[in-house]
Every structure is written in structure tokens, then in C-alpha cells.
Design a protein around this nucleic acid. Structure first.
Length: 489
RNA sequence: GGGCCGGUAGCUCAGUGGUAGAGCACCUGACUUUUAAUCAGAGGGUCGUGGGUUCGAUCCCCACCCGGCUCACCA
């Protein structure tokens, strides 16, 4: 291991500890209290002059004077000041604290709680022991670690130094546990389905590929859990859900990470309207659990998860923003002509469904700040959704939008095996025509449908994006502990 | 993938075609109530990587690597 000067100095201190017969990495701590609990009981413990042992990482500067020293330790529950008197602990231990310990070292102190003259709650130290000597020095005292790349690559250091960021991940955990609680209470069964799949499906995306050596089999990392979960509704579960990682081989930006966490749930004898109410309920409960309110600040907006979400048919939304009535322009050429006649600047797409999606993404989606359901998507871009009665070109599908971001996708699940087979065949044609995100044919899924899928409502929600909203973070990387980074030499 | 911006000490950042700078941190010394402790002193650099131009490149040119923003693509 090559060490720089600062690391070498710390290693030398470590060797001095060893030379003095001290183990710089002992097996356990004799801690009697967490710091937060010691502070809660401070008055009582201080009055009793009760001896206690605390442990933690030295944070901030050590303030060492000739015969007295101060420092703070932090243990994940809180932080407390150490008050170290040379007269109390003796010359040798005082010198060891001064000469062989550093900021970031993890130590254990025995002593009594006592207020300093300045009134700070402190532990008046009678003994010190090293629990883990650190080799790497801390970043700058005030600016801290601010380089975004380093914060993401060395998340552990980011979270040590910028300890308030730990709250973002605690909040994310509260959001997920709330989601689980709500789903569990409603009778959904949490299940786990394959990540390694011989056929991928359930979303429009390019997959990662991998390989099983012993079986000599090519495999995909799942892009969605959808088709396996619906097999379980066929199997007789009244409702199932899975919270797990999906993997999509696509670009990285402020709202996309190649691996991301998705919650998908399916409910027998329900439809997409039920899923809309479920989304409303989930986000309402999650926002309260995370922020204490249904009014959530996000990047200068105030999002309201307290009331019912707007429900706007996609065709209406597009007509309102562009003047183009996609419902009456059901051929690609007619749609292109209308776009040209209206003088609308938008990228030309090769198929009607993709063109509609493009109009929507360009002119409608960015405006959807408050929670909104866009409903009734074109069948062409919804190969797993049931057709809308009386409007066969559209489906009972919605996507949930907040702050211009798509949070989720849901539909009344297509359960007609013949229609489903035809949709897959259409997807294969699209794939052959160059749409590399088109679905594969999943014959086993068709076989499952042929045993009967009850009318089912299905929903997928992006957990990372919800975490962004509820913690007011501008990018998905700030709510992912270890976001994908290009490998560094 | 395109465009723009960036990479200099452990960290945060200045800077220049001619010996590489600051603050913090670190090290040495002083100091018995600090909390951005204070005071005095010292050390610390393949200036992202590789080429090129030049008497001389951290600086100019080219390529590449890594990142940020943005556009494209996408859930």
C-alpha cells in the first residue's frame, strides 16, 4: 500500500500505539451508552456522577492545550464533547491523546457527564482507549468534501463529513417501510422473482446481458418484474408486490440510473382506477411519514399530496398544449401532416404511438408539476395493457407525473391471451423494424394467461424518484447510496 | 453520443511560457475551559494521462481519461 505523507504519519502513530502494547483494532467495545441516550439522561447521570463509557469517531478539530483538551465524538446517534484534563488522566494518557490520536479515529472514553463552564454537556474523561485507528485524513475543516464526483465515489466519506446527508437515506428508508406497511395492510403479499431472466419483458428498455457458465446459458438482468408477478396472480394470490432493482441499459442523467429500485404490485379483481387511488394513498402516507406533511417542498415548488390527483386523458392533454387531436388523427401520415400544418417543432417519429409519446414528452410532461395522472395511452405503446372499452386504439393505462418526472406506470392488465400474443407479435415486428426497446415474445407468459388471469390492476412506482421528491434532492444520484460511476484507472 | 465548463498539496481553491501559491488540515514548540481556540516555526506537488510546439510547458496545440451542466435518447 502506497501511503502519502499524512497517511504515513498516521501509520507511524499506529505503530507507536502497538509499541506501547495497545491494540489499535480491538475486537469489541465496552460502551455502556449510546451518545443520544446519554444526552437524554444527562441531568440524572451528571447529578449521580455515574461512570459511563461512550464510543465514537472523533469529529472536528481536537483542541489540545498544555494541560487540558477538548474534542467531539460522534456515534451515529449523536455527538458529545470530550473534556480531558491532564491532571485527571495523567501525563502519559494525555500525551497519547495529543500525539497518537487524530480526527476521525474511533475511540472509547470512560468518565462522568459534566457541564463545562461554558455550559456544554460533556463527558469528563477518566480513560481513553482506541477502537480503530484511521489512516486517511479528514477533508477540509469547513468546506468539507464538496466535489460531487468524490462525494459519490467515496460515499462513506461523504456521509461521515456531511452527516446531515445521512438523513436523506433515513428518509428514503422511512418511505420504503411506509410503502411496505400500506401494501401489507391491504393484503398484498411481498414476493421475490428472478433478477436473471432468460427472456426480458415488462417494459420498453434495452437490457443488460450476462451468462451462466455451467448451464452455458445467456441471461438478461430484468428490466421489470411485471410478467413474473402477473404469473403469481394467475397462481391465485389476491395481490402481490415486489420491491427490488431493475436494470436498464440506457443513459444516465438526473433522473436515470442504470440500476434503480422499483415497486411493482398487482391486485386481482382491480383495475387502473383502483391503482390510481392506491398511488394517491401511498404518496400521501409516504409524504407524511417522511416530511410530516402532505405539502412537500421540492426545488422551489410546493407539491400537494393531500388531495386527489388530476386525471387527464393523454389525448386531451396533447390537444390542449398543441391543438392536435390525436384521437381523430389515427394514421402516422395524417398526424405528421397535422404537426407540419400547425408548425409544431417536434422530432419526427416513425410510428403513430411513438409520435404521440414524443408530442406528450415535449409539450405536456414538463408542465406536470403537481401530482397528475395522464390516462388512456395509445395501445401501440402499451403492449401489456387492456384496451379501453369502445376505444380500441387506447388502453386503460396511466402514468403518474410529479415535478415533470414520471413516477410510475399502471394499467388494467391485458388478460386476453390471443390479444396478448398479437401484441407481442407486433412488438417483434417493431423490433425487426429497428425499435430495440420492443418486447420479446414470452410464450410461457401466454401459457400462463391461458390458465386465466383475473381482471387485474397493476402498478409500478420508481422508488428513487419518490425519494428525490420527498427529500427535495435535485438528482437521483443524491438518493442512491452508491450511484453508478464510470470506472477510474 | 453532441455542446459548454472543469481536473493544481490530504481537502477547498488561486495562478503563470522561465525555481509552484493561499487557507484549512498535518508536523514541532508554547498554552488549565475550548468549541473556526490562539501564538511562533517547519514540511508537503508525476499541476488528470500521453504526445507535440518551444532553449524551456502546469500554462500553447492535439488526442485520450474522469467529472459537472446541458441537449439527444430513454421509465
Amino acid at each position: 500500500m502506497e501511503l502519502n505523507d499524512l497517511q504515513a504519519q498516521r501509520q507511524a502513530k499506529l505503530e507507536r500505539l502497538r509499541a506501547a502494547g495497545l491494540n489499535p483494532y480491538p475486537t469489541s467495545s465496552a460502551r455502556t451508552h449510546g451518545i443520544a441516550s446519554a444526552l437524554e439522561q444527562f441531568d440524572t447521570l451528571a447529578a449521580d456522577e455515574a461512570g459511563l463509557t461512550l464510543a465514537g469517531r472523533i469529529i472536528g478539530a481536537r483542541r489540545v492545550m498544555g494541560k487540558i483538551a477538548f474534542a467531539h465524538i460522534e456515534d451515529g446517534t449523536g455527538s458529545i464533547q470530550l473534556w480531558i484534563s491532564r491532571a485527571e488522566i495523567g501525563d502519559e494518557l494525555f500525551a497519547r491523546f495529543r500525539d497518537d490520536l487524530d480526527t476521525f479515529d474511533i475511540i472509547e472514553v470512560e468518565g462522568v457527564l459534566r457541564l463545562t463552564q461554558k455550559g456544554e454537556r460533556s463527558i469528563f474523561v477518566r480513560a481513553i482507549r482506541v477502537l480503530a485507528k484511521t489512516i486517511n485524513p479528514p477533508p477540509e475543516k469547513w468546506a468539507g468534501l464538496s466535489d460531487v464526483e468524490e462525494r459519490h465515489r467515496q460515499r462513506y466519506l461523504d456521509l461521515i463529513v456531511n452527516s446531515e446527508r445521512r438523513e436523506v437515506f433515513r428518509a428514503r428508508a422511512r418511505a420504503v417501510s411506509t410503502m411496505r406497511r400500506v401494501l401489507d395492510e391491504r393484503g398484498f403479499v411481498e414476493v421475490e422473482t428472478p433478477v436473471l431472466q432468460p427472456i426480458y419483458g415488462g417494459a420498453a428498455a434495452r437490457p443488460f446481458t450476462t451468462h451462466h457458465n455451467q448451464l452455458g446459458q445467456g441471461l438478461y438482468l430484468r428490466i421489470a418484474t411485471e410478467l413474473y408477478l402477473k404469473r403469481l396472480i394467475v397462481a391465485g394470490f389476491p395481490g402481490v408486490y415486489e420491491i427490488g432493482k431493475d436494470f436498464r441499459n440506457e443513459g444516465v442523467d438526473r433522473s436515470h440510473n442504470p440500476e434503480f429500485t422499483m415497486m411493482e404490485c398487482y391486485q386481482a379483481y382491480a383495475d387502473y382506477s383502483d391503482m390510481m387511488r392506491l398511488v394517491e394513498d401511498l404518496l400521501r402516507e409516504m409524504s407524511v411519514a417522511v416530511t410530516g406533511s402532505t405539502l412537500v417542498p421540492y426545488q422551489g415548488h410546493e407539491l400537494d399530496f393531500g388531495c386527489d390527483w388530476a386525471r387527464i386523458p393523454m389525448a386531451e392533454a396533447i390537444t390542449e398544449r398543441t391543438g392536435i387531436d390525436i384521437a381523430s388523427l389515427t394514421e402516422i401520415d395524417a398526424l405528421h401532416s397535422a404537426i407540419a400544418d400547425a408548425g409544431i417543432k417536434v422530432e419526427r417519429k416513425g410510428t403513430w404511438g411513438k409520435q404521440v409519446d414524443e408530442l406528450f414528452s415535449e409539450f405536456v410532461q414538463p408542465l406536470l408539476v403537481q401530482p397528475t395522472f395522464i390516462i388512456d395511452y395509445p395501445v401501440e405503446i402499451s403492449p401489456l395493457a387492456k384496451r379501453k372499452p369502445g376505444q380500441p386504439a387506447f388502453t386503460e393505462r396511466f402514468e403518474a407525473f410529479v415535478a415533470g418526472m414520471e413516477l410510475g406506470n399502471a394499467f388494467s392488465e391485458l388478460n386476453d391471451p390471443f390479444d396478448q400474443e398479437q401484441r407481442f407479435l407486433d412488438q417483434l415486428k417493431a423490433f425487426d423494424a429497428g425499435d430495440d426497446e420492443a418486447h420479446q415474445m414470452d410464450a410461457d407468459y401466454i401459457n400462463a394467461l391461458m390458465y386465466g388471469l383475473p381482471p387485474t390492476g397493476g402498478l409500478g412506482l420508481g422508488i428513487d424518484r419518490i425519494a428525490m421528491l420527498l427529500t427535495d434532492q435535485p438528482t437521483i444520484r443524491e438518493v442512491i447510496l452508491f450511484p453508478h460511476m464510470r470506472q477510474r484507472e
